[in-house]
Simulated scan of single mutants.
Amino acid sequence: MQKFDHLSGVAAPLRIANVDTDKIIPSQYLKTIKRTGLGRGLFAEMRYNDDGSDDPAFVLNQPAYRDATILVAGDNFGCGSSREHAPWALLDFGIRCVISTSFADIFYNNCFKNGILPIVVTPEQLEMLFDDAERGANARVSVDLVAQEIRGPDGGAIHFEIDAFRKHCLLEGLDDVGLTMAKTAEIERYEAAVSGARPWT
């Protein structure tokens, strides 16, 4: 998993509440277990017209936001069914951080396991970030995980809270497999001890 410490990029405003995982990545894109290529299906029902062409009204199709790395979203982001393809699609598109007032629990947990930082802010702070993001190409926002701060284009700072263990995993780039592999030496010592004590197992 890619490490996350600092991120500076364009923030795209998605002023929609209750965006569920089916909106994030519709079910027709769930036939693969690969994590790559899903960016094309991100927000497909909102992003594309019936003929498959881009809908110019959707935020990520607008020139200023095509390379967004931060998403500022409405309340209760990631609700609905539990599908890990949702953070995979965000990551494949290039989104490394999602900011909202609240997230569905499973989606929130899946973000950390895939190198995406979900940040919870107050409604007042979210409104400030929407204002920043709506500046288009000038909507560059910086996220400092070490300091736990979001900085807007005018330099104002918003502090955010995060669980210390999850912060550590993001900073070190450790998913569940990585956490296990970090204990390889201890696992090998245990297996050797068990093999010596119970050679018949």
Results as ranks from 00 to 15, higher is better:
R140I: 14
A192C: 00
L71Y: 00
Q125I: 03
S100D: 10
I116W: 05
F112T: 03
V19H: 01
V177E: 07
I95W: 04
I70F: 04
D132H: 10
K3N: 13
H6Y: 15
R83T: 01
V98L: 01
Q148T: 11
K34R: 13
S100A: 15
S81N: 06
G115S: 10
R15K: 12
F103L: 09
T69Y: 05
S195Q: 15
V120M: 14
D55L: 03
R83C: 03
A137G: 07
A12Q: 05
I116S: 03
D22N: 13
E161R: 14
I99P: 00
D132E: 14
M1N: 12
D132M: 08
G173V: 09
V19W: 04
K31Q: 15
N138D: 15
D131C: 12
P63T: 08
I24F: 04
Y108A: 06
F93T: 01
G152Q: 01
N18L: 13
N109E: 11
I24G: 00
F165G: 14
P26A: 10
N18T: 10
I16V: 15
D20T: 00
Y65N: 08
L42F: 02
D176C: 09
H159D: 05
D175Y: 00
E84Q: 13
K113A: 10
I162W: 03
P56Y: 03
L145P: 05
I99E: 01
P123C: 02
R135K: 12
G9F: 06
L129P: 02
C97Q: 06
I162K: 03
E188K: 12
F77P: 00
S195N: 15
D50M: 02
P56W: 04
K31A: 15
R66C: 11
K113M: 09
T101Q: 09
K23A: 12
L126V: 07
Y29E: 02
F130E: 08
F93A: 00
R66V: 09
M181G: 03
V177C: 09
I106F: 01
D105S: 13
L145E: 06
F103K: 12
T21E: 08
P199S: 07
G9R: 05
A57I: 01
A192N: 12
A11G: 07
A104N: 04
I25D: 01
H168K: 13
G39Q: 04
H168T: 06
R166M: 11
W88N: 00
Q125N: 08
S8T: 15
G156Y: 13
V98C: 07
A164M: 14
P123N: 01
D144G: 04
M181Q: 15
A193W: 15
K34T: 11
S8E: 15
L179I: 14
A86Y: 02
P87N: 05
V72S: 08
L170P: 08
P153F: 10
N114R: 10
A147Q: 10
D105P: 06
V72F: 07
H168E: 08
